[in-house]
Design a protein around this nucleic acid. Structure first.
Lengths: 254, 254
DNA sequence: CGCCCTATTGAGCAACTTCAAGTACTGTGG
DNA sequence: CCACAGTACTTGAAGTTGCTCAATAGGGCG
């Protein structure tokens, strides 16, 4: 386990975008040890029911959180992108109630629980920042319930694309942009609770409306505003725009 | 704001069923101040977009967490029962991304954030226990995505009933039991992403199979095992059976 | 008694699924 | 460079679940 500052930096940025951390606390994050690993798609790298002793920080690729109903139908309940820790909750609740699987070849950094717990134990503000990060994941889960439960296929797929584009900061404010989404239509179907056949027709419909272009795994969004409108997308739940003066710190800086 | 030990005790029990807290830390929970209040159904007592300064501990009744898609279709993304704090996440993330509404007349105890933050700041293990409580809510959200996305109407409604019965500890292990669920069919529809018409027909089908009886708001489950099977219900995600030796404490007891 | 809310029933309809086949990519070995 | 295999994508036709619209019945309460 060597230093992984470069890989940890995106995660630190995510934390400090919503939480207030002192220099020492930030160092504690950057000093976390880890073990980088390539994971293949279609193989659980965290199986259901496992009691894990580490978390997975995504360095590259996209990771899905998989649940399933008894008849074998799979549902992706979360999609994680580079810079996410996809099972942060396992630090306080190690029993995996979902499996984790890469959607394409991915690189993860496995960080042992003991290291995170040591940092959180030493710096309560680090624990607080991690807790806050978990609440953002929960807000996304709630939005997915709405997506799967209430929106029709076209709106639903568009909404997922908007969410991912926003989280990836793909457009950076531009109206017309292209981003890479290494995900198959079948996986999109598992995330939206549709069939891959219907996802295919839905994407065709979005293309026919000039809302997206889809070649290989590159998605072009010619008019972001139009896609947002079609998707009924309101990014508030993603909490990406927490202004500095709105940030909270429970713990006194010592 | 007077003492609310009696109302706080159920919540303390919930925390200590999964977390290890010292005598002082437990006292800190029981000493939390609060303001009891009756809330009417069909009125948000926490509106969407609000920046809240308190949490709501449910003393009696059932509370729904409401989200909605732009066309006005409402979705209940969580149902909270007595002993739950229904917006605990607001302690670290005060912007409400969902509204809260009682499903029937309910009694809540409003606990100010400053008091919870003080307890969490003083006792890191309290913060840890609260964080852990949030992860259980998140696991339930993920299961709801599966429920709404992948299960047919009958299984879906049965699953929700199983989850609520389990969380209420309604049967206490018995095979045949009755419990009170003060919820209308229309609200059940908002939680399962069905229409109230279809929920009605689904309940009839469950009744025809002898899986439930439903009179007023009392539900009788004559054969728990049979309902569980119909619902494809596996309670693991609820984390209700965390054995003492499995409980984790990050923070050293001081 | 009358009102309002909740539950129930029926008939027609639509969105999405299922099943089945066919086409286009991508990478690999010869 | 081509042949081949495997995966991903696309298309069509028929089937089903759950929705929409609309009306009726029941129960609690002032």
């Amino acid at each position: 386990m060597t230093s992984h500052r470069a890989n940890l930096h995106p995660y630190l940025n995510r934390l400090t975008s919503r939480s207030i951390l002192t220099e020492n606390e930030q160092q504690a994050i950057l000093d976390l040890p880890g073990h980088a690993e390539q994971v293949r798609p279609n193989r659980d790298f965290v199986p259901l029911g496992d009691i894990t002793d580490h978390v997975a920080l995504i360095v590259a690729g996209i990771v899905g959180r998989f649940d399933q109903s008894n008849d074998g139908a799979r549902q992706i309940t979360a999609m994680h992108i580079p810079g996410d820790i996809c099972n942060l909750h396992s630090v306080v609740q190690p029993l995996a109630t979902s499996a984790l699987q890469a959607l394409s070849v991915a690189t993860i950094l496995r960080i042992p629980h003991f290291a995170i717990r040591a940092a959180a134990g030493r710096y309560p503000a680090v624990a607080e920042a991690l807790w806050r990060d978990c609440t953002v994941d929960a807000a996304i889960l709630a939005e997915w319930i709405v997506n799967v439960g209430r929106r029709d296929a076209k709106t639903r797929v568009a909404h997922l694309l908007c969410e991912l584009a926003t989280r990836l900061d793909a457009g950076q404010g531009a109206d017309d942009f292209t981003f890479d989404l290494p995900v198959t239509q079948a996986q999109l179907a598992e995330a939206t609770a549709l069939t891959s056949v219907h996802v295919n027709r839905t994407l065709q419909s979005l293309r026919a409306d000039g809302l997206i272009e889809w070649h290989q795994r590159l998605i072009r969004v010619p008019r972001w505003d139009a896609l947002v409108e079609c998707a009924e997308f309101d990014p508030a739940y993603l909490q990406t725009q927490v202004r500095p003066e709105q940030r909270i710190r429970i713990v006194r800086a010592s």
